[in-house]
Simulated scan of single mutants.
Amino acid sequence: MRIVFFGTPDFAVPTLEKLLSEPDFEVVGVVSQPDTRRGRGNQVSPPPVKAAAIARNPDLKIWQPERLKKDKTILAELESLEADVFVVVAYGQILSKKILNMPKYGCINVHGSLLPKYRGAAPIQWAIANGESITGITTMQMDAGIDTGAMLLKAELEILPEDNTDTLSGKLANLGADLLVDTLRQLTTITPEPQDDTLSCYSPMIGREDWELDWKLEAIALHNRIRAFYPNCYTDFRGQRLKVTKTELISEGISESSNLEDVGKIDQILKGKGFVVQTGKGLLLVKEVQPAGKKLQSGWDFVNGMRIAIGESLS
């Protein structure tokens, strides 16, 4: 089976590597997003999929168009490959109808949720943020809509209480690689299942406005958002921005002594663990933080270093 692989971030790498290691598949080309400049030195850095492709096969053809559907030269090259299927995993650009129709068996997408739920750009993050206990991978026959194509195979995965977006993404990426191989091997015998649009919900891209913690929310909601938007959630403490990267639920009900004026205040100091914050409903133990300009540290080290006192406020 001749395959062109479309993908960009770390999430797509296990699927590409799986395809490259299977003797009955031939990856004849890779399409990824352009290199970017990042870091203090503003150095050019390739996307993870490109780096993985070069590491496995330096001679593999790689395209990195700014806008694929407008690049006639690359489109002609892709068409000339006469691929059996295009595999798409978090590529980052919308594919035109012309591209979708190029391969013999169309374009197969590996999506990080159990469709039709959580269509869109950030299914893993929003599943955690919304307190889901089960998620998974869906392989899908792509159409002109956003994650609206007919479903092929699914695999479920439990979301553990300690999972954040990084850990869950890694698990789902590996699960997706295996499911994609199963899908391709059964492609001519699978009966595609249309999605029920009434069961769908959209998972938009995460923005900076999602990162700021509102202590008036319930403890469980804050805990889930910190896991979902890891490592970017923040609050203010003593006039400085403080990232909160790991928490634990202490209670889900408002403590007897609390009132609305206590929301956002430090309620307890737990030796060896960190500090406890009163939320709109429940207490939340802060176990790991990152002060502005500093490295990650435990909540307990932060307590000692800043000499934190009970009753101080976060905002």
Rank of each mutant, 00 (worst) to 15 (best):
Q195Y: 07
Q195M: 13
Q195W: 09
D196R: 11
D196K: 14
D197R: 10
D197G: 05
D197Y: 08
D197E: 14
T198R: 08
T198E: 11
T198A: 12
T198W: 04
T198I: 10
L199Y: 12
L199C: 12
L199T: 13
L199W: 10
S200P: 01
S200H: 04
S200E: 09
S200Q: 11
C201T: 13
C201N: 15
C201P: 02
C201E: 11
C201H: 11
Y202M: 13
Y202W: 15
Y202T: 02
Y202A: 05
Y202V: 03
Y202E: 07
S203G: 05
S203I: 03
S203V: 01
S203N: 04
S203F: 04
S203E: 02
P204N: 03
P204S: 04
P204G: 04
P204I: 02
P204L: 04
M205F: 10
M205E: 06
M205S: 09
M205N: 03
M205R: 09
I206C: 11
I206K: 07
I206V: 15
G207Q: 09
G207T: 14
R208T: 11
R208N: 13
R208F: 10
E209I: 08
E209K: 10
E209P: 01
D210P: 00
D210N: 05
D210H: 01
D210Y: 01
W211M: 14
W211D: 07
W211G: 03
E212C: 08
E212G: 06
E212L: 10
E212K: 10
E212W: 00
E212A: 13
L213S: 00
L213I: 11
L213Q: 00
D214R: 00
D214G: 00
D214P: 00
D214C: 02
D214M: 01
W215G: 08
W215M: 09
W215A: 09
W215T: 04
K216I: 03
K216W: 06
K216M: 11
E218Q: 13
E218L: 05
E218P: 02
E218M: 08
A219M: 06
A219D: 05
A219H: 09
I220K: 14
I220T: 15
A221H: 05
A221D: 14
A221W: 01
L222C: 04
L222S: 03
L222G: 01
L222Q: 01
H223S: 12
H223I: 02
H223G: 07
N224E: 07
N224R: 10
N224I: 05
N224V: 05
N224P: 09
R225G: 11
R225Y: 03
R225H: 11
R225T: 08
I226C: 07
I226T: 01
I226S: 04
R227M: 12
R227N: 15
R227A: 15
A228F: 05
A228R: 02
A228L: 09
A228D: 03
F229P: 07
F229H: 13
F229K: 10
F229M: 15
F229E: 06
Y230I: 06
Y230Q: 06
Y230F: 15
Y230E: 05
P231M: 14
P231F: 14
P231E: 10
N232H: 15
N232S: 09
N232D: 06
N232Q: 12
C233V: 06
C233W: 04
